[in-house]
Write a protein that binds this DNA or RNA. Structure first.
Length: 301
DNA sequence: AAGCGTATCAACCGCCGGAAT
DNA sequence: TATTCCGGCGGTTGATACGCT
Protein backbone atom coordinates (compact mmCIF):
# COMPACT_ATOMS: atom_id res chain seq x y z
CA UNK A 1 0.00 0.00 0.00
CA UNK A 2 1.18 3.47 -0.72
CA UNK A 3 0.97 6.60 1.41
CA UNK A 4 -1.72 9.14 0.58
CA UNK A 5 0.77 11.98 0.14
CA UNK A 6 2.30 10.35 -2.85
CA UNK A 7 -0.92 8.91 -4.12
CA UNK A 8 -1.61 11.31 -6.95
CA UNK A 9 1.86 11.38 -8.41
CA UNK A 10 2.27 7.70 -7.98
CA UNK A 11 -1.06 7.17 -9.65
CA UNK A 12 0.22 8.83 -12.79
CA UNK A 13 3.45 6.96 -12.63
CA UNK A 14 1.56 3.79 -12.01
CA UNK A 15 -0.57 4.38 -15.05
CA UNK A 16 2.45 5.13 -17.14
CA UNK A 17 4.20 2.10 -15.76
CA UNK A 18 1.17 -0.01 -16.55
CA UNK A 19 1.10 1.43 -20.04
CA UNK A 20 4.74 0.61 -20.50
CA UNK A 21 4.20 -2.92 -19.27
CA UNK A 22 1.18 -3.36 -21.49
CA UNK A 23 3.01 -1.95 -24.47
CA UNK A 24 6.08 -4.04 -23.96
CA UNK A 25 6.82 -5.21 -27.43
CA UNK A 26 4.01 -4.61 -29.82
CA UNK A 27 0.49 -3.96 -28.69
CA UNK A 28 -1.99 -6.74 -29.32
CA UNK A 29 -3.90 -6.65 -32.56
CA UNK A 30 -7.20 -7.34 -30.93
CA UNK A 31 -8.58 -8.83 -27.79
CA UNK A 32 -9.91 -12.27 -28.22
CA UNK A 33 -13.19 -11.43 -26.55
CA UNK A 34 -16.20 -11.16 -28.79
CA UNK A 35 -14.43 -12.38 -31.87
CA UNK A 36 -16.77 -13.80 -34.43
CA UNK A 37 -15.89 -17.02 -36.19
CA UNK A 38 -17.29 -18.99 -39.04
CA UNK A 39 -18.34 -18.06 -42.55
CA UNK A 40 -18.20 -14.46 -43.60
CA UNK A 41 -21.41 -12.74 -44.51
CA UNK A 42 -21.72 -10.57 -47.63
CA UNK A 43 -22.12 -7.58 -45.37
CA UNK A 44 -18.83 -8.32 -43.67
CA UNK A 45 -17.20 -8.82 -47.04
CA UNK A 46 -18.43 -5.46 -48.22
CA UNK A 47 -17.18 -3.76 -45.11
CA UNK A 48 -13.78 -5.35 -45.46
CA UNK A 49 -13.51 -4.71 -49.17
CA UNK A 50 -14.57 -1.12 -48.86
CA UNK A 51 -12.06 -0.55 -46.10
CA UNK A 52 -9.22 -2.09 -48.07
CA UNK A 53 -10.33 -0.22 -51.13
CA UNK A 54 -9.82 2.94 -49.19
CA UNK A 55 -6.74 2.09 -47.20
CA UNK A 56 -5.16 -0.71 -49.12
CA UNK A 57 -4.23 -4.12 -47.78
CA UNK A 58 -1.87 -4.31 -44.87
CA UNK A 59 -1.91 -3.16 -41.30
CA UNK A 60 -4.40 -5.86 -40.58
CA UNK A 61 -4.14 -5.13 -36.94
CA UNK A 62 -6.14 -1.97 -37.36
CA UNK A 63 -8.76 -3.42 -39.66
CA UNK A 64 -11.15 -4.86 -37.06
CA UNK A 65 -10.93 -1.72 -34.99
CA UNK A 66 -11.45 0.67 -37.86
CA UNK A 67 -14.15 -1.31 -39.57
CA UNK A 68 -16.03 -2.48 -36.54
CA UNK A 69 -15.83 -6.02 -37.78
CA UNK A 70 -15.99 -8.56 -35.00
CA UNK A 71 -13.19 -10.52 -36.61
CA UNK A 72 -9.60 -10.86 -35.64
CA UNK A 73 -7.01 -9.31 -37.89
CA UNK A 74 -5.85 -12.70 -38.99
CA UNK A 75 -9.29 -13.66 -40.12
CA UNK A 76 -9.59 -10.41 -42.08
CA UNK A 77 -6.26 -11.01 -43.77
CA UNK A 78 -7.16 -14.57 -44.66
CA UNK A 79 -10.52 -13.54 -46.01
CA UNK A 80 -8.87 -10.95 -48.18
CA UNK A 81 -5.97 -13.00 -49.45
CA UNK A 82 -7.92 -16.19 -50.02
CA UNK A 83 -11.18 -14.85 -51.26
CA UNK A 84 -11.71 -11.16 -51.70
CA UNK A 85 -8.57 -9.82 -53.29
CA UNK A 86 -8.80 -8.96 -56.97
CA UNK A 87 -7.55 -11.31 -59.60
CA UNK A 88 -8.46 -14.54 -57.93
CA UNK A 89 -9.64 -17.21 -60.25
CA UNK A 90 -11.83 -19.85 -58.74
CA UNK A 91 -12.79 -23.30 -59.84
CA UNK A 92 -11.90 -24.84 -63.16
CA UNK A 93 -8.25 -25.59 -62.82
CA UNK A 94 -6.95 -25.89 -66.34
CA UNK A 95 -4.87 -28.84 -67.49
CA UNK A 96 -1.89 -26.55 -67.62
CA UNK A 97 -2.44 -25.43 -64.08
CA UNK A 98 -2.85 -29.00 -62.98
CA UNK A 99 0.40 -29.89 -64.66
CA UNK A 100 2.17 -26.99 -63.04
CA UNK A 101 0.89 -27.93 -59.63
CA UNK A 102 1.97 -31.50 -60.09
CA UNK A 103 5.42 -30.46 -61.24
CA UNK A 104 5.89 -27.85 -58.58
CA UNK A 105 4.65 -30.12 -55.85
CA UNK A 106 7.15 -32.71 -56.93
CA UNK A 107 9.85 -30.07 -56.86
CA UNK A 108 9.01 -28.14 -53.77
CA UNK A 109 6.88 -30.43 -51.71
CA UNK A 110 3.89 -28.97 -49.94
CA UNK A 111 5.15 -25.42 -50.22
CA UNK A 112 1.80 -24.14 -51.32
CA UNK A 113 2.71 -20.49 -51.06
CA UNK A 114 5.71 -21.05 -53.28
CA UNK A 115 3.63 -23.01 -55.73
CA UNK A 116 0.97 -20.33 -55.67
CA UNK A 117 3.57 -17.73 -56.60
CA UNK A 118 3.76 -19.42 -59.99
CA UNK A 119 0.00 -19.44 -60.33
CA UNK A 120 -0.79 -15.84 -59.46
CA UNK A 121 -4.50 -16.21 -59.88
CA UNK A 122 -4.70 -19.07 -57.46
CA UNK A 123 -4.37 -18.88 -53.74
CA UNK A 124 -2.23 -21.26 -51.79
CA UNK A 125 -5.34 -22.44 -50.04
CA UNK A 126 -7.02 -23.20 -53.33
CA UNK A 127 -4.02 -25.07 -54.62
CA UNK A 128 -3.69 -26.97 -51.40
CA UNK A 129 -7.32 -27.95 -51.48
CA UNK A 130 -7.15 -28.92 -55.10
CA UNK A 131 -4.10 -31.03 -54.50
CA UNK A 132 -5.62 -32.77 -51.52
CA UNK A 133 -8.99 -33.37 -53.09
CA UNK A 134 -8.16 -33.98 -56.72
CA UNK A 135 -4.58 -34.36 -57.73
CA UNK A 136 -3.30 -36.40 -54.82
CA UNK A 137 -6.08 -38.85 -55.27
CA UNK A 138 -5.65 -39.00 -58.97
CA UNK A 139 -1.93 -39.47 -58.81
CA UNK A 140 -2.26 -42.07 -56.13
CA UNK A 141 -4.64 -43.97 -58.29
CA UNK A 142 -2.34 -43.65 -61.21
CA UNK A 143 0.65 -44.50 -59.10
CA UNK A 144 -0.81 -47.84 -58.22
CA UNK A 145 -0.79 -48.68 -61.88
CA UNK A 146 2.75 -47.54 -62.43
CA UNK A 147 6.06 -49.19 -62.23
CA UNK A 148 7.22 -48.46 -58.65
CA UNK A 149 10.51 -47.05 -59.85
CA UNK A 150 8.81 -44.49 -62.01
CA UNK A 151 6.05 -43.75 -59.60
CA UNK A 152 8.53 -43.08 -56.85
CA UNK A 153 9.32 -39.85 -58.60
CA UNK A 154 5.87 -38.59 -57.84
CA UNK A 155 6.04 -36.94 -54.54
CA UNK A 156 2.95 -37.49 -52.49
CA UNK A 157 4.70 -36.83 -49.24
CA UNK A 158 5.55 -33.46 -47.81
CA UNK A 159 9.23 -33.94 -48.46
CA UNK A 160 10.41 -32.00 -51.46
CA UNK A 161 12.90 -33.28 -53.94
CA UNK A 162 15.73 -31.30 -52.49
CA UNK A 163 18.37 -32.45 -54.89
CA UNK A 164 16.57 -31.25 -57.91
CA UNK A 165 15.44 -28.09 -56.24
CA UNK A 166 18.98 -27.30 -55.33
CA UNK A 167 20.12 -27.89 -58.84
CA UNK A 168 17.39 -25.81 -60.28
CA UNK A 169 18.01 -22.94 -57.97
CA UNK A 170 21.70 -22.99 -58.66
CA UNK A 171 21.16 -22.83 -62.34
CA UNK A 172 18.69 -20.04 -62.12
CA UNK A 173 19.52 -16.64 -63.45
CA UNK A 174 18.14 -13.18 -62.99
CA UNK A 175 16.15 -13.15 -66.15
CA UNK A 176 12.52 -12.47 -65.54
CA UNK A 177 10.58 -15.57 -66.18
CA UNK A 178 6.91 -15.25 -66.59
CA UNK A 179 4.48 -17.97 -66.01
CA UNK A 180 1.36 -17.76 -67.99
CA UNK A 181 -1.67 -19.33 -66.64
CA UNK A 182 -4.54 -20.28 -68.75
CA UNK A 183 -8.10 -19.36 -68.42
CA UNK A 184 -10.84 -21.54 -69.60
CA UNK A 185 -14.27 -21.00 -68.32
CA UNK A 186 -13.84 -19.09 -65.13
CA UNK A 187 -16.45 -18.86 -62.49
CA UNK A 188 -16.99 -15.39 -61.33
CA UNK A 189 -16.20 -15.53 -57.69
CA UNK A 190 -18.55 -14.23 -55.13
CA UNK A 191 -15.77 -11.84 -54.26
CA UNK A 192 -15.97 -10.39 -57.70
CA UNK A 193 -19.65 -10.03 -57.31
CA UNK A 194 -19.07 -8.32 -54.05
CA UNK A 195 -16.58 -6.04 -55.72
CA UNK A 196 -19.08 -5.18 -58.38
CA UNK A 197 -21.73 -4.78 -55.78
CA UNK A 198 -19.42 -2.51 -53.93
CA UNK A 199 -18.60 -0.54 -57.02
CA UNK A 200 -22.25 0.00 -57.65
CA UNK A 201 -22.79 0.81 -54.08
CA UNK A 202 -19.94 3.27 -54.07
CA UNK A 203 -21.18 4.87 -57.25
CA UNK A 204 -24.67 5.27 -55.93
CA UNK A 205 -23.54 6.51 -52.57
CA UNK A 206 -21.06 8.95 -53.94
CA UNK A 207 -21.21 11.05 -57.04
CA UNK A 208 -17.46 11.14 -57.09
CA UNK A 209 -16.75 8.01 -58.99
CA UNK A 210 -13.04 8.62 -59.26
CA UNK A 211 -11.74 8.05 -55.84
CA UNK A 212 -8.28 7.05 -54.80
CA UNK A 213 -6.02 5.21 -57.17
CA UNK A 214 -6.34 2.22 -54.95
CA UNK A 215 -9.79 1.75 -56.33
CA UNK A 216 -8.30 0.56 -59.52
CA UNK A 217 -7.38 -2.57 -57.74
CA UNK A 218 -10.93 -3.64 -57.99
CA UNK A 219 -11.19 -3.24 -61.67
CA UNK A 220 -9.49 -6.45 -62.26
CA UNK A 221 -9.59 -9.18 -64.79
CA UNK A 222 -13.26 -9.22 -65.32
CA UNK A 223 -13.43 -5.50 -65.41
CA UNK A 224 -14.81 -5.26 -68.76
CA UNK A 225 -16.99 -8.09 -68.82
CA UNK A 226 -19.80 -8.47 -67.44
CA UNK A 227 -22.36 -10.62 -67.63
CA UNK A 228 -20.93 -13.42 -65.70
CA UNK A 229 -22.66 -12.37 -62.61
CA UNK A 230 -23.07 -15.97 -61.82
CA UNK A 231 -21.90 -16.63 -58.36
CA UNK A 232 -19.40 -19.41 -58.46
CA UNK A 233 -20.02 -22.09 -55.96
CA UNK A 234 -16.43 -23.17 -56.07
CA UNK A 235 -17.27 -26.66 -57.12
CA UNK A 236 -15.20 -28.28 -59.76
CA UNK A 237 -16.77 -29.32 -62.97
CA UNK A 238 -16.50 -32.89 -64.01
CA UNK A 239 -14.84 -32.08 -67.28
CA UNK A 240 -11.95 -30.57 -65.49
CA UNK A 241 -11.41 -33.70 -63.51
CA UNK A 242 -11.57 -35.70 -66.65
CA UNK A 243 -9.09 -33.39 -68.19
CA UNK A 244 -6.42 -34.73 -65.95
CA UNK A 245 -6.75 -37.96 -67.76
CA UNK A 246 -6.27 -36.29 -71.07
CA UNK A 247 -3.90 -33.48 -70.39
CA UNK A 248 -3.20 -31.59 -73.52
CA UNK A 249 -0.54 -29.10 -72.69
CA UNK A 250 -0.57 -27.73 -76.16
CA UNK A 251 -3.98 -26.23 -75.90
CA UNK A 252 -3.18 -23.49 -73.54
CA UNK A 253 -4.43 -20.03 -74.04
CA UNK A 254 -2.09 -17.61 -72.41
CA UNK A 255 -4.55 -14.86 -72.23
CA UNK A 256 -4.08 -13.85 -68.68
CA UNK A 257 -0.96 -11.82 -69.14
CA UNK A 258 -2.84 -8.61 -68.79
CA UNK A 259 -4.23 -9.68 -65.51
CA UNK A 260 -0.84 -10.62 -64.28
CA UNK A 261 0.62 -7.33 -65.36
CA UNK A 262 -2.23 -5.46 -63.87
CA UNK A 263 -1.88 -7.16 -60.57
CA UNK A 264 1.80 -6.46 -60.49
CA UNK A 265 1.26 -2.86 -61.40
CA UNK A 266 -1.23 -2.48 -58.68
CA UNK A 267 1.02 -4.15 -56.24
CA UNK A 268 -2.06 -5.36 -54.53
CA UNK A 269 -1.52 -9.03 -54.75
CA UNK A 270 0.53 -10.40 -51.97
CA UNK A 271 2.90 -13.28 -52.45
CA UNK A 272 2.91 -13.14 -56.18
CA UNK A 273 5.24 -10.35 -56.88
CA UNK A 274 8.93 -10.96 -56.99
CA UNK A 275 8.94 -14.67 -57.33
CA UNK A 276 12.39 -16.13 -57.17
CA UNK A 277 14.33 -15.59 -60.38
CA UNK A 278 13.98 -19.10 -61.53
CA UNK A 279 13.72 -18.84 -65.24
CA UNK A 280 15.43 -22.16 -65.59
CA UNK A 281 12.97 -23.74 -63.28
CA UNK A 282 10.11 -21.96 -64.90
CA UNK A 283 11.21 -22.99 -68.32
CA UNK A 284 11.51 -26.47 -67.05
CA UNK A 285 8.09 -26.28 -65.55
CA UNK A 286 6.63 -24.97 -68.72
CA UNK A 287 8.29 -27.66 -70.71
CA UNK A 288 5.78 -30.34 -69.99
CA UNK A 289 7.67 -32.92 -71.93
CA UNK A 290 10.61 -32.65 -69.62
CA UNK A 291 8.35 -32.52 -66.66
CA UNK A 292 6.57 -35.63 -67.66
CA UNK A 293 9.79 -37.45 -68.23
CA UNK A 294 11.19 -36.51 -64.91
CA UNK A 295 7.97 -37.01 -63.10
CA UNK A 296 7.30 -40.25 -64.78
CA UNK A 297 3.98 -38.84 -65.73
CA UNK A 298 3.03 -40.02 -69.14
CA UNK A 299 0.48 -38.40 -71.32
CA UNK A 300 -2.30 -39.76 -69.24
CA UNK A 301 -1.72 -36.72 -67.06
C1' DA B 1 -38.19 -39.59 -50.56
C1' DA B 2 -35.03 -40.63 -46.97
C1' DG B 3 -30.82 -41.95 -45.17
C1' DC B 4 -26.12 -42.47 -45.52
C1' DG B 5 -21.45 -41.90 -47.21
C1' DT B 6 -18.28 -39.07 -49.80
C1' DA B 7 -16.38 -34.82 -51.80
C1' DT B 8 -15.44 -30.13 -51.56
C1' DC B 9 -13.76 -25.93 -49.75
C1' DA B 10 -13.86 -21.94 -46.57
C1' DA B 11 -12.09 -21.03 -42.36
C1' DC B 12 -9.58 -22.03 -38.23
C1' DC B 13 -5.46 -23.56 -35.60
C1' DG B 14 -0.89 -23.55 -34.29
C1' DC B 15 3.75 -22.73 -35.41
C1' DC B 16 7.63 -19.86 -36.99
C1' DG B 17 10.49 -15.92 -38.48
C1' DG B 18 10.97 -11.33 -38.32
C1' DA B 19 9.56 -6.75 -36.90
C1' DA B 20 8.32 -3.49 -33.40
C1' DT B 21 8.87 -1.64 -28.95
C1' DT C 1 18.59 -7.42 -25.41
C1' DA C 2 14.20 -9.21 -24.18
C1' DT C 3 9.59 -9.37 -24.97
C1' DT C 4 5.57 -9.31 -27.59
C1' DC C 5 2.99 -9.40 -31.64
C1' DC C 6 2.24 -9.47 -36.76
C1' DG C 7 2.15 -11.69 -40.94
C1' DG C 8 2.74 -15.80 -43.40
C1' DC C 9 2.48 -20.56 -43.82
C1' DG C 10 0.95 -25.54 -43.82
C1' DG C 11 -2.14 -28.76 -41.66
C1' DT C 12 -6.63 -29.72 -40.24
C1' DT C 13 -11.53 -29.31 -39.41
C1' DG C 14 -16.43 -28.62 -39.98
C1' DA C 15 -20.34 -27.32 -42.70
C1' DT C 16 -22.47 -28.01 -46.82
C1' DA C 17 -23.31 -30.08 -51.34
C1' DC C 18 -23.61 -33.99 -53.89
C1' DG C 19 -24.30 -38.78 -55.19
C1' DC C 20 -25.60 -43.38 -54.35
C1' DT C 21 -28.57 -46.99 -52.47
Amino acid sequence: MRGNSQKSTHKVEEAEEKEIIINMGRPPCCDKVGIKKGPWTPEEDIILVSYIQEHGPGNWRSVPTNTGLLRCSKSCRLRWTNYLRPGIKRGNFTPHEEGMIIHLQALLGNKWAAIASYLPQRTDNDIKNYWNTHLKKKIKKFQSNLDPQISSNINLTPQPSFQFVSKSFNESNTEDGKVNTTSSSVYASSAENISRLLEGWMRSSSSNSNSSPKNSGFHHQNGGNDDDQVVGNGTVCKHEFDSLDNLDYGNNNHDDDDDDDQEKKLGKVENIVNPPPLSFLENWLLDETIGQEVMGIPSIF
